[in-house]
Design a protein around this nucleic acid. Sequence first.
DNA 1: GATTATATACGACGAAGATCGTTGACATAC
DNA 2: GTATGTCAACGATCTTCGTCGTATATAATC
Lengths: 133, 133
Amino acid sequence: MAKSTKPFGNAPLPTEAELAILQILWKLGPSTVREVHTALQSRRTGYTTALKQMQVMTEKGLLTRSERYRSHVYEARIPQEQTQLLLTRNLLQRAFDGSAKDLVLGALSAQPVSASELAEIRKMLDRFEKRNS
Amino acid sequence: MAKSTKPFGNAPLPTEAELAILQILWKLGPSTVREVHTALQSRRTGYTTALKQMQVMTEKGLLTRSERYRSHVYEARIPQEQTQLLLTRNLLQRAFDGSAKDLVLGALSAQPVSASELAEIRKMLDRFEKRNS
DNA sequence: GATTATATACGACGAAGATCGTTGACATAC
DNA sequence: GTATGTCAACGATCTTCGTCGTATATAATC
């Protein structure tokens, strides 16, 4: 029993290093280990480290792997938005006692937010307001 | 060298279990190990586990301890808002590439948000808009 | 077909986190 | 003053994460 075939749902939240790899794959699309590794200059880590990690991630259901070619091609199994949602929900529960308002406050305080970004956020609020009515 | 006396700044981000304990202390105020442990029913963990964890947290600078009484009294050393801010900033960098907008989107999508809460969020936006002008 | 370059597979290790058992100190009740 | 209960201290274990070294497969080149 492993090799889960479910969509996701059972995939665990990615760890720190796993998230870094996912970021690359979301940006580049399906990639080989080498491509991911070189895109990962920030972390001064070896090639086999990235390889191992991606293998583990595949077992966990975070990635899928195509072995058709000599160099296996990996792909994120879960879309970025889905993962962001889960991570946010997780933080919301763990640190904010479920208060979305406080989390938004945190997000805005965490770094300077441009005026245009504030405008976009307002638009989102409008959309949510309609949805709830 | 340990026993840091700085305000915080050097205190690390709390781990999962540590955050759960901090939540209790923020809510109850200064408390003994037993009080924290009983307030922590969710985690089916033993008394000594909580004790050990709080001792470690004290070494790390996350808690302070008063030994005046027979039962030591622990207190969160870092205010809740400060920790929330750091955690949010952390998530923002790790998973959202710094896009506050996407994080807000995540926060609103993570769970149903009431109309009154939306209104409060709007007020916050107003405040931020003024601040940036 | 021997050499070289590049992949993957496998296993190990160290650090950190979480959990708990045991021990010894210290009260309080009998 | 002995027994009982509560507490802090300490050390041990187990797990997860991140990291890498080594071995093995395979393709390309000479």
